[in-house]
Design a protein around this nucleic acid. Structure first.
Length: 303
DNA sequence: GGTAGACCTGGACGC
DNA sequence: GCGTCCAGGTCTACC
C-alpha cells in the first residue's frame, strides 16, 4: 500500500534525514538499496509495520507492506507528518538567514526541519538517553530498549514475527511502565537513567503526564520548557533539544560540543561557558536554536 | 541562586 | 587481562 503526503515547500527528505542523529537510532533506518528512510511503527490497532519513506513531487511517498484500515492509514499519516515536520513554516527564519553568510545555505537546501519520532514520548526517552554518554552509548541503549521491550513486526498474516525478529517498534509507555528498573539497567544498560525512563513511562501510561498537551502551539514556550524540566532526567540541554523537536527554537541546546564550537569560532579557543554560547545566538530570538544547528562553522573541524 | 559531588557506562591508556 | 582515568548532563544536598 502506498500513501502520498504533501509538505509545505521548500521540502527535502534527504535534508531532513541529514538534519539529526535520530536517523541512526532504531527503529529508524535507511534502506540501502533505495535510500528510503524506514521506520518500524506500532499502529493504534497493535499492528507493527515498516514504513518506507521516499521523496515524491511536493512531499513524500510512504510504502507499507500491508493493506491498512482507515484508522491505521490515519495513524501513519499523522506519524509521518510529525516525523518529517511536513507542516512547519520556516519562511521567517529564511528571511533572516539571507542576511547572514553562515546561514545563507539554509533556504536553498531546504534546511530547518529536524527528524522527530512519531510521538513525543519516544523523543523524550531518546533525549534522556543522549545525556551524559557518548553517541555510541545512546545507540546501544535505544537498541537495547527496542530489542527487549519493542513489539516485533507483524507478518503478512497479521501474526507477529518470531521473537528474534530484528525489526521491532519502539516500546509503548505501558510496556516500559511494567518493566523492572533493574531489567532496564541490566538488559538495556541504561545505568542511572533507568528509573527516569520508568518513571516517565508510568506517568504517561497512568495519565498523570499528558505529553500531547506539550504540542499545543498556543502554549508559551516558557511554560512548555518548565513542564519539560519537571521530567526527571530532563535538564536545560535536554529541554532545549526537546523544544526543537516541538518546533520551538527559542533556546540553544548547550552541550559540551557547543562550548567547543563557540570557543573556536569567537573566543580563539579560550574556554567558554553557557552564557557565552547563549550570547552568541541571542540575536536570532525565536530562531536561535536553528541558527546554532545549521550554522556553517569556520572552525568546526578543529573543535 | 550557585556549586560540589555523585550517578553509570564504555573507551582509551598504561602496566 | 586488569586497573585507572576520563567524558558526557542531571540530580541532590548544601551553602
Amino acid at each position: 500500500m502506498e500513501l502520498q503526503l504533501e509538505a509545505r515547500p521548500p521540502f527535502s527528505l534527504p535534508a531532513v534525514m541529514r538534519s539529526h542523529g535520530w536517523v541512526d537510532l532504531a527503529p529508524f533506518g535507511r534502506d540501502e538499496r533505495t535510500g528510503a528512510l524506514t521506520y518500524v511503527a506500532r499502529l493504534g490497532t497493535g499492528r507493527v509495520v515498516e514504513l518506507r519513506m521516499m521523496p515524491a513531487p511536493g512531499g513524500v511517498r510512504v510504502e507499507v507492506d500491508a493493506v491498512l484500515g482507515e484508522d491505521e492509514g490515519a495513524d501513519v499519516r499523522r506519524g509521518v507528518r510529525r516525523m518529517l515536520a511536513l507542516d512547519d513554516d520556516f519562511s521567517a527564519f529564511y528571511t533572516l538567514a539571507r542576511e547572514e553568510p553562515h546561514l545563507a545555505h539554509v533556504e536553498a537546501e531546504a534546511r530547518g526541519r529536524l527528524l522527530r519520532s512519531p510521538t513525543l514520548f519516544e523523543d523524550v526517552v531518546k533525549t534522556i538517553l543522549t545525556t551524559n554518554t557518548t553517541w555510541a552509548g545512546t545507540i546501544r541503549m535505544v537498541e537495547g530498549l527496542i530489542a527487549h521491550w519493542g513489539a516485533p513486526l507483524t507478518g503478512h498474516g497479521d501474526d507477529p514475527l518470531p521473537d528474534d525478529s530484528p525489526q521491532r517498534a519502539f516500546p509503548t509507555p505501558a510496556r516500559l511502565a511494567a518493566t523492572d528498573v533493574e531489567a532496564l539497567r541490566a538488559q538495556a544498560r541504561l545505568g542511572y537513567r533507568a528509573p527516569y525512563v520508568r518513571e516517565l513511562a508510568r506517568a504517561v501510561d497512568g495519565g498523570q503526564l499528558d505529553l500531547d498537551a506539550f504540542e499545543d502551539p498556543a502554549l508559551p514556550v516558557e511554560t512548555v520548557r518548565k513542564r519539560l524540566l519537571a521530567i526527571k532526567g530532563v535538564g536545560p540541554y535536554a529541554a532545549a533539544s526537546l523544544l526543537v523537536l516541538l518546533g520551538r527554537y527559542d533556546f540553544v541546546p548547550v552541550d559540551s560540543w557547543a562550548f567547543k564550537l563557540v570557543s573556536r569560532e569567537w573566543y580563539d579557543g579560550r574556554p567558554v561557558g553557557r552564557a557565552e554560547v547563549e550570547a552568541a545566538f541571542a540575536r536570532w530570538g525565536e530562531w536561535q536554536a536553528l541558527a546554532y544547528w545549521f550554522w556553517k562553522w569556520d572552525h568546526a573541524e578543529q573543535a
